[in-house]
Amino acid sequence: MNGQVKKEKLSIIAFSGTVDKLYPVAILASGATAMGMDVEIFLTFWGLNAFRKDQLNKPGKISKDFEEMAPLVMNVFKAKNVPHWIEMLRQAKELGNVKIYACAMTYDLFQMKKEELSELIDGVVGVGEFLEKAKESSITLFI
């Protein structure tokens, strides 16, 4: 774009598995692709757990600290037709260069299989590889 040699990049370490944290991941990734940035997401621990197909079919959970707000939040999202966060990420991937990686340690420890995870995941990478990629980012977030 605009003959730039290198595109700007947003890196996100998605650690949390509750919807109130997964939505920011999806919205920031969408916004970044819209603004022409590359995006790399490293899913670890609860973040990776949320990308398991069996988890995606369940109603999402909200952070324990705001548990009492969960029914309100869910009702608002439903009433306002907010798409599922995984759908937002799917759209972001269609629109721009979004790569989603599974943390190798979480993947190994919990004996995950590729076919059990969302097809949006591009691969399994170690922390070293992710940091190597992330160090070129203009923005890096831990969510």
């Binding site: 969408s30 916004g31 819209a34 306002k80 037709n81 759209q91 972001a92 629109l95």
Partner: peptide, 12 residues
């Protein structure tokens, strides 16, 4: 009815 950043994404 679409929320941030939906309308921008649709424009793009």
């Amino acid at each position: 009815g679409s929320h941030c950043p939906g309308p921008l994404m649709e424009l793009i």
